[in-house]
Simulated assay, not measured.
Amino acid sequence: MPTRKTSFQDIAELAGVSPSTVDRVMNGRAGVSAVRRRKVIEAARQLGSNRLPAVPDDYALRVLVVRTAEDDEYFARMDRALDEAAAALRPRVELTRVHHVRAADGLGALIREASRHCHGMIVLAHDGAEIRKALGRVAKAEVPIATLTSDITFQQQRTYVGIDNVAAGRSAAFMMSRFMQQPGRVLLMTGPQSYVVHRQRTAGFVEGLAQHAPWLQLIGPVDVGDVNARAQTAMRNALHGHSRLVGVYNTGGANDGVRAVLEGLSPAERPLWFTHETHPGNVDLLRRGVMSLLIDQDPAAQAVVGLQSILYANGEIARAPDPHVRFHLVTMENIESARALPIA
């Protein structure tokens, strides 16, 4: 027997809305809230309908971007990537940004209020109690959330878009074992542990070094908190040990502190230095041989996939994007061809 075609009545019953609401959504008419629109789209998908809803002429997808207010090159790079991705996508995407500091009073109320007027949220933030609580409430209100770069551990559904940070840490350890076959000490410096990304990279490096290079002695992890002065102190303390410092892995920022110490050493005295992100300052250090290896997490790909996940949740594209972004290992030999490299 032929399969019965899914009707608007079927979709309405599953979505808990009226058939007229389904008609308005599927035929691109205004007057339906973003939450009800997503309910209709999800019900249609569950019933096997492949039809995408029509888009009104004046329709724009409103996406709220919440990120920490830290002013560093990675966040600036991600801001540019989100702007470029939003400009290239259809239907039109409008970004509204909320920048916050870690102890910001009223952050939860600010996020909840802003989320009432958006079709989805992109979040780049630390894993703090206040933001977990706020995002949990937003998710319960059925607003799609994509966490980029570093996940946030609230219980409700969200899409993490980014690299496998445990694998990135393990890869750094593996490369350290290939570069350095002689015994020596390796300093592990981490960024703020309030970020899941730093906890994961740290765990991966510790596991990987124990497995791949048991002849290397691990110092740390030392949490330098993205503070250059603390990174300098950690470097100087490690260099004054009884055995030679042969390697440094930094999971995050504070690279100027490491650079200040290593540039004072001769090339023969410098340990290997592995860190993250191909922004111009790091690229210069790599070219000059001060830095040995960069692990880039491709913020341009994260921006596109993060916004595509919001588009999918709102029924604007038929297939959910793959949230797993590949990272890239960059040395002085492949700087020019590295896909994620932002050459000015």
Rank of each mutant, 00 (worst) to 15 (best):
D298K: 08
T190H: 01
R288I: 00
T190F: 00
R201T: 01
S194K: 13
S292Q: 13
Q302K: 00
N250G: 04
A210G: 07
G204A: 12
R259T: 12
T202V: 06
V222F: 06
A238W: 02
N228A: 15
L209W: 04
L286Q: 04
Q302H: 00
A229D: 13
M235T: 12
R236T: 09
L294R: 13
L311D: 06
I219L: 15
P214H: 05
L209Q: 07
D223P: 04
V246L: 15
N250K: 03
Q181V: 08
A301Y: 07
G191L: 06
E269M: 15
L311K: 02
S309D: 06
Q308C: 09
N237P: 03
V248W: 06
R287S: 06
D296V: 06
S194C: 14
G225A: 10
N255Y: 14
E277F: 05
I219N: 02
G281N: 12
L262C: 02
H198G: 01
A231G: 09
G204Q: 10
V246G: 15
D298M: 06
V258I: 15
S194A: 14
A238G: 08
S292D: 13
L188F: 00
V197C: 10
D296M: 10
M235K: 13
I219H: 10
A203R: 15
R230L: 08
Q182D: 12
G247A: 11
N282V: 04
D296W: 03
S266E: 14
I310V: 14
Q302W: 00
H212Y: 15
F179T: 11
A300M: 01
A260F: 09
I295G: 06
G220Y: 00
A300C: 02
R178C: 10
G257V: 01
V305D: 07
G208T: 14
G208M: 13
V261D: 05
H276Y: 11
A301T: 12
H240L: 11
G252F: 02
V196H: 01
E207K: 05
A210I: 09
F179E: 12
A260K: 09
L285A: 12
L286D: 04
S243Q: 13
V258S: 05
A210Q: 15
F205T: 00
R178K: 09
V248D: 12
S266M: 14
H212N: 12
I295F: 14
L293P: 04
D256A: 05
R199D: 00
Q232G: 09
P221L: 01
V305S: 11
T202I: 04
L187K: 00
H242W: 11
N250E: 07
A268I: 02
T190R: 00
A268W: 03
G257L: 07
G306F: 04
Q302N: 02
I219W: 08
A229F: 07
R259G: 07
V261Y: 04
T202R: 06
T190P: 00
V222T: 11
F179Q: 13
S177W: 13
A238P: 08
R270P: 05
S177L: 08
V222Q: 08
L187H: 00
L286S: 08
V290G: 03
S309Q: 06
L285W: 15
S309K: 03
H279M: 05
L262W: 01
R236I: 03
L285P: 05
L262G: 01
R236D: 03
V196R: 05
V186M: 07
A254F: 08
A268V: 10
G247R: 09
G253H: 12
H276P: 06
V248A: 14
G247H: 09
